[in-house]
């Protein structure tokens, strides 16, 4: 499966009435993960997060595409 670039956030058992809600749920959880951390701690958390998610995705073609997009337009 190629890298998904369409909105894809969802949660089992949750019914969403507004299209922005699942993404906003994710984003809040993401920012909350960093609450009260120093910048250094946040960098480490972000690195761990990428590694955890990368392993979960597994498919190196997808990961390479994501890495390419993340570096583009810097």
């Amino acid at each position: 499966m190629p890298l998904t670039l369409q909105p894809n956030f969802h949660e089992a058992g949750t019914r969403y009435f507004r299209p922005f809600s699942p993404g906003d749920d994710f984003y809040e959880a993401l920012i909350e993960t960093h609450r009260d951390l120093s910048d250094e701690q946040s960098d480490l958390v972000n690195a761990k997060l990428i590694l955890l998610l990368a392993n979960h995705i597994g498919d190196l073609a997808v990961l390479r595409e994501a890495m390419r997009l993340a570096r583009a337009r810097l």
């Binding site: 998904t4 670039l5 369409q6 909105p7 894809n8 507004r18 299209p19 922005f20 993404g23 906003d24 994710f26 984003y27 993401l30 920012i31 960093h34 951390l37 910048d39 946040s42 960098d43 972000n46 997009l69 337009r73």
Partner: peptide
């Protein structure tokens, strides 16, 4: 925080080309 700002700006940069990031742009719901 610096991290929140970085994430916010990353969403805004990705939003130019990627529908998933556009859905995360929150200038008021």
């Amino acid at each position: 925080t610096k991290t929140s700002l970085t994430f916010r700006n990353a969403v805004l940069e990705l939003a130019r080309d990627n529908p998933f990031a556009r859905a995360l742009v929150n200038s008021g719901r």
